[in-house]
Design a protein around this nucleic acid. Structure first.
Lengths: 176, 176
DNA sequence: GTTTGCATGTAAACGGTTACATGATTGG
DNA sequence: CCAATCATGTAACCGTTTACATGCAAAC
């Protein structure tokens, strides 16, 4: 899902500045399955404006750059819905952690333990974040997405807690 | 995790040609959390050879291009382990499906059902693949990785089956 | 007779991140 | 005093994908 489409999606819910869109990503739970940096959001908004899919209104501010508030246009809504009617790109999951676990036997035992600790802490943190935003979910979709995220994270944590011993165990060379 | 490191990892287990490395990705369960195309593998192998991290031996073949079999060097092994001792990059999960679910209320009901059907079929397929490779897992790490993948996919499928009704339900406008 | 598998490689295009550039305000 | 927040934007860089280029053999 490209930054263009993500911006349209957010703007279909609320008008916002580029900066605010970025914040919605990070804070409102979107960041579990999409992401974008400001360096890609600003150019995307510029292009969407050119194409008439969003409109922009400048709000002057004292001692700050003008806020540029973007609003989705009817054409923008149509384009957004159209993009969701097309076949969706596949999910992509890249996990350096899982990759590293494949080679646990090459690593010192405490490095493996440390990786597990870090990863568990990280998932814990994500799960906590998810549960925090779950409360203020607005739409059916948000409930569904946070629920599914929670299901997945919980299962992963369960697995890690019960199976970390397997990978932390010393390699026992078969006695001859 | 960049293609370089992934190639080194695979070559730490077995020598292989670029073509074979690609196949190992797709067939041996690696593709659930790492991926790379031939267009990135060949240049990566060339560079690793230059740097002395892998060595290359050409095997002439009749009526086919020479096979170039790559073997990791001691320096390559050291570099690979060193890369796993450094802090790992974060996992990244990009899900156009989850993103689309956030906007289910904007879509026709049967498009949502179709997305769910497609996605469930897709996860089913991945899970079956994982269970197929789980049998011939060689190392502790492979067992761990396939086990964790299975745990996550199973939880997601469970969730989808029990909660799809929530998102497929008609939006009932509150009676006034 | 067409697709799939084997086997290599290059180059253009793409989409994105990171760093740079600027600068006042507020909270710790 | 320093870090974070607000607020925009550009440009260089990066890694990767996709398409192109080549071509035979086996399977369907």
């Amino acid at each position: 899902m490209d930054v263009r489409t993500i911006c349209l999606g957010i703007l279909s819910r609320t008008q916002a500045t580029g900066y605010e869109i970025k914040k919605l990503f990070d804070e409102d739970g979107y960041d579990h399955f999409v992401e974008a940096s400001l360096g890609s959001i600003y150019p995307a908004l510029g292009k969407l404006t050119e194409e008439g899919l969003v409109s922009m209104r400048e709000e002057a501010q004292e001692k700050r750059p003008d806020r540029k508030v973007y609003t989705i246009t009817p054409a923008g809504r149509r384009a957004f819905v159209a993009s969701l009617l097309k076949p969706l790109p596949e999910d992509r999951y890249r996990s350096p952690f899982m990759f590293a676990m494949l080679f646990a036997d090459l690593l010192p035992k405490d490095r493996v333990s440390q990786m597990l600790d870090d990863y568990i802490a990280h998932i814990d943190h994500k799960l906590a974040h998810l549960e925090r935003v779950e409360g203020n979910a607005q739409s059916k979709g948000e409930h569904f997405a946070t629920g599914m995220g929670r299901a997945a994270f919980t299962a992963i944590l369960d697995f890690l807690h019960t199976h970390r011993v397997d990978i932390e165990a010393e390699d026992v060379k078969a006695a001859e």
